[in-house]
Simulated scan of single mutants.
Amino acid sequence: MNPVYHQAKFINSSPDLKDTPEDQGREVAFAGRSNAGKSSAINTLTRQHGLARISKTPGRTQMLNFFEINATERFVDLPGYGYAKVPIAVKKKWHELMEKYLTQRKSLCGIVLVMDVRHPLTEFDWQMIEWCQHTGLPLHILLTKADKLNYGAAKNTLMQVQKELGDINFPLTIQLFSSLKKTGIDEVHKAIDLFFMPVDEFESEPEVE
């Protein structure tokens, strides 16, 4: 477990790129469906229960939320997609904000894509995977809420998702994860460690669980 992530602190929430922290250093962004457990994953990885806001109503993350790890590294919690019962105009605004961030943010160095292990590879998940493939941006997939299935079923889902992603040719890793049981934390930390490495040092990939 990498203790450096435990010192993460909230910086700000930004409704537009002009309000974000200065675009320098390196950022790892967390993306995923609104009810996939994205905020819970961030809190678990940082050992801070209330760092990323968790709501009983999916879709409350409506802005770009920035968390400082140290002077040069940050986490970014992206707006959740695909589930929230909000007006179409609001969803359009979320989409535009995410598109601007993903295409314009120079410090973005990797994506952690969070999926509920019971409902993986939604249409929106595929869009994010294809975008990362197109840009060559490293991607690490968390199949969250693994505690909701028995071990055999969770492992079978992992293998099925790996099979469906078998033809993807860019830096991609995938694992099971549970915020409730605190399982899979070390694997995520290793993946993020690699994301934060300078490009010329990014030579190997974390092992697939």
Rank of each mutant, 00 (worst) to 15 (best):
P3C: 13
V4S: 15
V4E: 15
Y5R: 07
Y5S: 05
Q7V: 13
A8R: 00
S14R: 07
S14P: 08
P15W: 00
P15Y: 00
D16E: 14
L17Q: 01
E22N: 11
D23L: 08
D23P: 05
G25V: 11
G25A: 09
G25F: 11
A29H: 05
A29Y: 04
F30M: 11
A31R: 08
R33F: 12
S34I: 10
N35L: 07
A36N: 04
A36I: 11
A36Q: 03
G37M: 10
K38R: 15
S40L: 14
S40N: 10
I42G: 04
I42H: 00
N43S: 05
N43G: 06
N43L: 07
T44V: 08
L45I: 04
Q48K: 15
L51R: 10
R53K: 15
R53W: 03
S55V: 07
R60E: 02
R60A: 02
L64W: 10
N65Y: 09
F66W: 15
F66P: 10
F67N: 03
E68H: 02
N70S: 11
A71N: 14
R74Y: 12
V76G: 06
L78W: 12
L78Y: 12
P79G: 04
G80W: 07
G80A: 15
G80I: 11
Y81V: 13
G82K: 04
Y83K: 04
K85I: 04
A89P: 02
A89E: 15
V90H: 08
V90I: 14
K91L: 10
K91R: 15
K92C: 01
K93T: 07
K93F: 02
W94C: 02
E96K: 13
L97H: 08
M98C: 13
M98P: 01
E99I: 02
E99K: 13
R105D: 12
K106A: 11
G110A: 09
V112T: 09
V112Y: 11
L113E: 03
L113P: 02
V114Y: 03
V117Q: 04
H119C: 01
L121R: 07
T122Y: 01
T122I: 02
F124K: 05
F124W: 08
D125T: 00
D125C: 04
W126E: 11
W126A: 00
W126L: 10
I129Y: 02
I129W: 01
W131E: 00
W131Q: 08
W131P: 00
H134R: 13
L137W: 05
L139S: 03
I141D: 10
A146C: 03
K148D: 05
A154K: 06
A154Y: 03
L158W: 05
K163C: 00
E164W: 05
L165H: 05
G166Q: 07
G166A: 08
G166L: 08
D167Q: 13
L172K: 03
T173L: 03
T173W: 01
T173K: 04
I174N: 06
L176D: 08
L176R: 15
S179G: 14
L180Q: 14
L180A: 14
K181E: 12
K182L: 10
D186K: 15
K190E: 13
A191R: 03
A191Q: 00
A191S: 11
I192P: 07
I192S: 04
D193V: 01
L194R: 11
L194A: 03
F196M: 09
M197F: 12
M197D: 06
V199K: 15
D200F: 07
E201Y: 12
E201S: 14
F202Q: 15
F202W: 05
E203S: 06
S204G: 01
S204L: 09
P206N: 00
V208R: 09
